[in-house]
Amino acid sequence: MSERVFSGATRIESVPGNDRGIAYGDGVFETMRAARGGIAWWPAHWTRLQEGARRLGITPPDPAFVRAQADELLADDDAVLKLIVTRGSGGRGYAPDAGAAPTWVLSRHALPPAAPAAGVVLRWCSTRLALQPALAGIKHCNRLEQVLARGEWNDPAAPDRDAFEGLMRSVEGDVVSATAANLFVLRTGRWWTPRIDRCGVAGVCRRWLLDDLDARESRLDVTDIETADAVFLCNAVRGILPVARLGTRTWTPHAQVAAARERLAQANPAFSAINPETT
């Protein structure tokens, strides 16, 4: 991993110990896929980061400066780029300092291993997502619910320890997303995805697919998922991931999922290297 840390426009050695991102998760972040130095969906990522910063009352850094630093860090590589923006340093206590310079960190990471060629295996997570409309949709830095959920199948006694991902529900029982991906299901000839108005992250890849698939948003329950004709996950790093199994329910490869993956690869060069037959 390579990284650069800044306070406002000044490069610094490391994130200060009194940074509010460390103390309270007081910040937002974006995780992006880069191919040959080009960043997939950069405008959409920056728009979501700005919206998250606006809701939290954080002034984000200059986008042109951030992009210039990102381009230098990537150096034409195929990689994952992560951008974290926090409120900056502050004293003890929750009250935010309106004059604090934001801390921001750019880091470059290796691409993740290829997903199973036959499709991914999912499990249901026991950890539920709390309802908080003020934070719904944005990618804020407090992701402890996802951390707890992802840790569930590290237990040697846990079922489906071979699962690639886990599906999370809200405290009211509706299905929201996977721990690190959005969810789409095909039912009665139409694609559906859970609403992200009370909790969850409104993914950048999800936004593209809502338009591409003419998909609809709705409250979905467990039965809606388990009886669907096809299911896939998506995020901005891996693109579209077909689902092969959830518990005892299995799905065979579906032509509509394969077609969506092909359109994504054509529309976004960062995903052109993801061969639907091998990843």
Rank of each mutant, 00 (worst) to 15 (best):
R128S: 11
S170P: 08
V243L: 09
P116I: 05
E13S: 14
T59S: 15
G203P: 07
A75Y: 00
A64Y: 00
W251I: 10
G91H: 10
R216G: 12
G137C: 09
A244V: 04
P113Q: 08
V243Y: 04
I274P: 03
E3Q: 15
V185W: 00
D211T: 14
T278P: 05
V121N: 07
W208V: 05
A110M: 07
P16V: 01
S170V: 06
T47D: 13
S2I: 00
E145L: 01
A163K: 10
L74V: 05
G8D: 09
V176D: 05
L74P: 08
V175H: 06
L73N: 10
E72K: 13
V80W: 05
T103D: 00
W208K: 05
G203S: 07
V105N: 01
R55E: 07
V85S: 03
R219I: 02
L74A: 06
L213P: 12
T278K: 12
R238A: 11
T188F: 06
V66A: 12
T103C: 11
S2D: 15
R198Y: 01
G21T: 08
W192D: 00
Q69F: 01
F184Y: 11
I240N: 06
P133T: 12
G203L: 05
G21R: 05
A255G: 02
V85F: 03
F184T: 11
G99Y: 00
C141Q: 14
E277D: 15
A270L: 01
L83D: 07
S107W: 00
T10G: 05
A267Y: 05
L111Q: 02
A44W: 06
C199P: 06
R216A: 14
R198G: 01
D162T: 14
I58K: 08
S2C: 03
R263M: 03
G173I: 04
D71V: 14
G173V: 05
F232H: 06
L220P: 04
A244Q: 15
N18D: 15
Y94M: 10
G17E: 12
A75S: 13
A244K: 14
P253M: 10
N154V: 00
G247C: 09
L122P: 09
V105K: 02
D224N: 10
L167R: 06
L111M: 03
T31D: 08
C199K: 09
Q256V: 01
K139V: 04
S218M: 07
R36N: 02
S107I: 01
K139W: 03
P113V: 03
R216D: 12
G25Y: 04
P61G: 04
D97V: 07
A236V: 02
V121D: 11
R20P: 07
A228S: 15
N268K: 01
M168L: 15
A68R: 13
N142S: 15
Y94V: 10
I225P: 07
C234N: 01
V231D: 09
S89F: 00
L111W: 02
S177M: 12
E13T: 13
A178W: 07
L233N: 08
F232A: 10
D224R: 02
P96E: 10
P43K: 03
S7G: 02
L81K: 07
A53Y: 07
P156F: 08
E51C: 09
F164C: 12
L131Q: 13
A75K: 03
E217Y: 05
L233T: 10
T86A: 05
L135G: 11
A260Q: 09
L209E: 10
A68Q: 15
L148W: 13
F65L: 15
T279Y: 11
